[in-house]
Write a protein that binds this DNA or RNA. Structure first.
Lengths: 338, 338
DNA sequence: AGGGTTTGATAAACCGGTATAGCTCCCGAA
DNA sequence: TTCGGGAGCTATACCGGTTTATCAAACCCT
């Protein structure tokens, strides 16, 4: 027999399909003795539920989705997504729920995917990343009544559940660390201002500057690419009163910045301290190795999965879970200014 | 009405469910006039097939799977997977087939996933990566009769369909290029010998050495990690008659090797030429930028998806598609030996 | 004109589960 | 002694599609 169905089990156990269903799902309706007998037979026949059949009757699909809207070109350099994915899956695997991953070009395409997933019943819920200010996805998902959890930002007026780390605090930690070393000219090479986390980091720098007595603390926005990271660094270092420390919003930009500094004969950390907001193998491979803000991305993903499952179980829930704070890993790229 | 079903459409069109099904799937059984009317109504009601219902009746799920068996830690540095994924999806999206992605720790877990997917009917087929010598997955998938396509290697005695690039030729190109520059001591920092592509590259170096008059051409295996890449480089450069050129099997190891060279005061490309087998942003970010073998990974994935769909349509097909040859991108890390 | 084939459609079975109404015992309380 | 009620199980409807058997009407040929 190719793939046994519950009807096969029922026949073999001499009971009805319903009884088998009860037994296999641990719900009342059969005696302990019968349940055990059925479970033994199911085990022995290597029965597995047919996911489609289950999805049709009940309305859960045991599958959640995640769409990443980034041009393929800029994707994959940061280990961020890979770790996040692993984490999400470890959070899902406990309930043996599968993950659909989709990479699309832009937010419009992403929303289209949500619509399709919704009408085709392909997923029970979704995980959102790269939250922007006034993110159109939030309203859309609300309208579709699709369970969702936002990673890395509040879910818009508390509408959606979210899992987030305290970017503001992390950025303050970095700036305070640099100020404590004696730096007074600190520059911030930020990401794209449409992202909420970029905004929060920029605000954190701006707010901390006067308190720490910084002479100058500009935040310069980029598109997160190595090219713009390098160009911005070049502009900064060409200034008469150039910064003695630069904070980069991503590890890729920090590495690009380090390259520019070396090329311009600016020694790191002698003449310039460099801090990367995100940590990865990249920062560790450099010479000097870069001081970086490390987040437990894996755990981030795991928690997002957990929260999503809660929301799916009870769509009324709105959790706003704050994850462990990022910690600053000091390496060789930071020192007191000369 | 929340989500219209074909019954709703049938009622509105004044026909039976069956007629609607025929019309929507473009099969004979309804007149052109009726078909058009039904299609218009379906369009107007924004009908979408319920994926589970369709999967239950027919036996296709319109979903394919891909399992990556690597410890999360080593994952995600190389843009390889991200690009591959994008490519696979672009190949699948035409037929609006979705992709299930799973990251697991080892091959054993991977096989377990295939078994589960098979018995739960979760996917119509799978894509295999990181083919090893005598890969146990091939026999398993054959036994499960699950459509599959292998990326980056032949599918074991022509059993499974595959999509591959010519590693051997690519490696020969690199070695010939270095020999033409005048190098006679070339070392090869390889990956894990369990992988077929590693074996092929090692053999290519060994075979080419005498023909090109190389004095020495050792292939040293590693676990692909930056740590072992660095350690191996250190050993090589400490030798009395150290190599004048090193070929690395991955971009990460090449970068680590470059770091070691700089640290030991070996100038690149003055005293040592470096070539990375895989290209990525990493190699471009370095100073000097690394000469590297570039593959069109996106296209690789796209083709794998296409072949898989062919195999799913007709399980008897065994395609062995060879993709475009990788090309050597010469940058600043290679020069004639001093 | 009559018998056979084609066309266009329908009703019902089916896929493999889940949910529910209902039936039969059996036990305890009134 | 009877009745209520819960435990244990069966039968059946149902989820939303696909597929098949069936059938009436039209069409075709000699």
């Amino acid at each position: 027999m190719a793939r046994p169905t519950i009807a096969d089990i029922a026949q073999r156990a001499g009971v009805s399909k319903g009884a088998v269903s009860f037994a296999l799902n641990g719900r009342p309706g059969v005696s302990e003795a019968t349940r055990e007998r059925i479970l033994r037979i199911a085990e022995q026949m290597a029965w597995r539920p047919h996911s489609a059949a289950r999805a049709l009757g009940a309305s859960r699909v045991d599958s959640v989705g995640m769409v990443i809207a980034r041009p393929a070109r800029t994707l994959g350099v940061e280990p961020f997504f890979a770790h996040l994915l692993s984490g999400v899956q470890s959070g899902l695997s406990a309930e043996s729920i599968s993950l659909q991953l989709l990479i699309v070009e832009d937010t419009e395409a992403e929303i289209e995917v949500y619509r399709r997933w919704n009408s085709e019943h392909r997923v029970d819920g979704v995980i959102l990343v790269d939250l922007t200010v006034r993110d159109p996805r939030i309203d859309e998902l609300k309208a579709l009544e699709m369970p969702a959890v936002v990673i890395g930002g509040r879910g818009g007026k508390g509408q959606l559940a979210s899992v987030w780390a305290d970017d503001r605090d992390a950025m303050l930690t970095i700036v305070e660390y640099l100020a404590a070393l004696g730096h007074r000219r600190i520059a911030h090479v930020a990401g794209t201002p449409v992202f909420q986390h970029t905004q929060r980091r920029i605000r954190a720098v701006r707010d901390a500057a006067p308190r720490l007595g910084l002479l100058d603390a500009p935040s310069l926005t980029t598109d997160f690419s190595d090219a713009e990271g390098a160009a911005t660094t070049r502009r900064l270092l060409a200034q008469a009163d150039r910064p003695t420390a630069i904070v980069y919003d991503s590890d890729v930009m920090a590495v690009a910045g380090l390259g520019v500094a070396m090329e311009m004969g600016v020694s790191v950390p002698g003449d310039l301290s460099i801090v990367a907001f995100d940590d990865s193998i990249l920062t560790q491979l450099m010479h000097p190795a870069l001081t970086a803000m490390s987040r437990d991305t894996f755990d981030f993903g795991r928690q997002a999965a957990e929260v999503l499952l809660e929301v799916i179980a009870d769509p009324a829930t709105v959790v706003n879970r704050r994850t462990a704070d990022p910690v600053l890993t000091v390496r060789e790229s930071t020192a007191p200014p000369s």
